[in-house]
Computed example of a mutant assay.
Amino acid sequence: MKAFFEGIEDLFVNVLFAPYDMFRFMESWWAANTINWILAIIGSVAFVYWMLELKKYDDKGEEDKSVTSHSYL
């Protein structure tokens, strides 16, 4: 089991989180923070887009909202 968990550690540390090592060696706090703000803005835009799509779908009124729409209700 130890080798299994070491394999998971190796996957995350050396593969998946490798791009984050670039942030560690940035000398400029502003550059690292700018990247974080860009990612936050992208996430916010995606969230607003998704909410608008859900609202558009809800406004069409095509969804069956009756109590018997699902057997477990």
Rank of each mutant, 00 (worst) to 15 (best):
residue 70 H to M: 12
residue 10 D to P: 01
residue 71 S to K: 15
residue 63 E to M: 14
residue 26 M to F: 15
residue 47 F to P: 01
residue 23 F to N: 15
residue 11 L to C: 12
residue 64 D to Q: 07
residue 55 K to W: 05
residue 46 A to I: 02
residue 14 N to T: 00
residue 51 M to F: 12
residue 50 W to S: 15
residue 46 A to N: 06
residue 46 A to T: 00
residue 59 D to M: 10
residue 32 A to C: 11
residue 51 M to Q: 13
residue 9 E to V: 04
residue 49 Y to H: 11
residue 28 S to C: 08
residue 55 K to V: 03
residue 58 D to Y: 13
residue 10 D to M: 08
residue 33 N to W: 06
residue 35 I to T: 13
residue 20 Y to C: 04
residue 31 A to I: 10
residue 19 P to Y: 07
residue 65 K to P: 01
residue 66 S to D: 10
residue 24 R to C: 08
residue 19 P to D: 03
residue 43 G to W: 03
residue 61 G to R: 00
residue 35 I to K: 05
residue 19 P to T: 03
residue 63 E to H: 13
residue 20 Y to R: 10
residue 10 D to L: 07
residue 64 D to M: 02
residue 9 E to P: 00
residue 40 A to H: 07
residue 9 E to D: 09
residue 22 M to E: 13
residue 11 L to F: 08
residue 18 A to P: 02
residue 22 M to F: 10
residue 55 K to C: 06
residue 57 Y to Q: 09
residue 5 F to P: 01
residue 49 Y to N: 07
residue 1 M to T: 14
residue 9 E to I: 03
residue 33 N to P: 00
residue 3 A to R: 02
residue 33 N to Q: 13
residue 40 A to W: 04
residue 27 E to W: 10
residue 46 A to W: 00
residue 52 L to S: 11
residue 52 L to K: 13
residue 9 E to Y: 06
residue 65 K to Y: 12
residue 71 S to P: 03
residue 40 A to M: 06
residue 35 I to A: 06
residue 41 I to T: 09
residue 49 Y to I: 06
residue 47 F to R: 07
residue 4 F to W: 12
residue 2 K to H: 12
residue 4 F to Q: 12
residue 55 K to Q: 08
residue 47 F to Q: 11
residue 20 Y to K: 12
residue 57 Y to R: 08
residue 30 W to G: 09
